[in-house]
């Protein structure tokens, strides 16, 4: 199929502002948008710049705004996105070059929620036991690949970059609901902050954007409920 890609370009060494550039290519409906970007880079214009690595939706490198919706370029097939495709960097993070954004502000929010296992009791000789039922309580949120599709699709985050954002809340959820973890209280305090969960207006953009099909908004609601119950 003949496809037209309209890509937002920006080279910080040359351009004062981003601009659009169009490319026409012959692609197969089963090809990924990433295949087209790599084709352009390898055969048409080597300066086109994006991140990518695994090419099958596992590493979280190639989040971008494709036809106005955040998704991974390696998980978007032309059969789905059609033959007129606009591609922009994800919004709300500073653009470095073309489709590459500065991930640091995102990672900072991630680090702020104590995204690691806390249990200061001496470890048993073998594994800590956990029932299958308890294990399932945080299954969804373990799937997060930190691609930033959710956080950078959230209008609240665009408006207030101090908002910790859906991805960081999902990461906190992963530990708050883990029966083996002892750091929930600290995490809930962090998220009860004015720039924490209460900024979420349940707009659901995050859930729609998640390439791992995590029910992000639901996870945020569970954290909100937990804060209310723990009477913070």
């Amino acid at each position: 199929m003949q496809v037209t890609l309209k890509i937002q370009r920006f080279n910080p060494e040359k351009d004062s502002a981003p601009y659009w550039k169009e490319y026409s290519l012959d692609m197969h409906p089963n090809d990924r948008v990433l295949d087209a970007l790599l084709y352009i880079k390898n055969h048409i214009d080597g300066t086109l710049t994006m991140r990518s690595s695994c090419a099958h939706g596992i590493c979280g490198s190639d989040a971008m705004r494709i036809n106005g919706v955040n998704q991974l370029a390696c998980k978007s097939l032309f059969s789905k996105v059609g033959n007129n495709v606009t591609i922009e960097p994800i919004a709300g993070l500073p653009v470095i070059k073309d489709l590459v954004v500065d991930m640091e502000p995102f990672m900072e929010h991630y680090r702020s929620v104590l995204p690691f296992f806390i249990n200061d009791d001496p470890a048993p000789e073998k594994e800590r036991l956990q029932s299958e039922e308890d294990r399932l309580k945080f299954e969804e949120s373990t799937k997060c690949i930190l691609c930033a599709c959710c956080t950078t699709s959230c209008p609240t985050f665009w408006a207030t970059d101090a908002y910790v954002g859906p991805a960081a809340i999902v990461q906190a959820h992963r530990f708050i609901f883990d029966s083996r973890d002892q750091g929930s209280q600290q995490r809930l305090e962090i998220l009860a902050d004015p720039d924490g969960v209460w900024r979420c207006r349940t707009i659901f953009n995050c859930t729609n954007a998640c390439p791992r099909e995590i029910k992000v908004t639901e996870a945020i609601a569970e954290v909100k409920k937990e804060i209310l119950f723990s009477k913070l």
Binding site: F116, R128, E132, R135, T142, F175
Partner: peptide, 8 residues
């Protein structure tokens, strides 16, 4: 012990 969520 580091928290890895193995299936059970």
């Amino acid at each position: 012990h580091m928290g890895l969520p193995f299936d059970r």
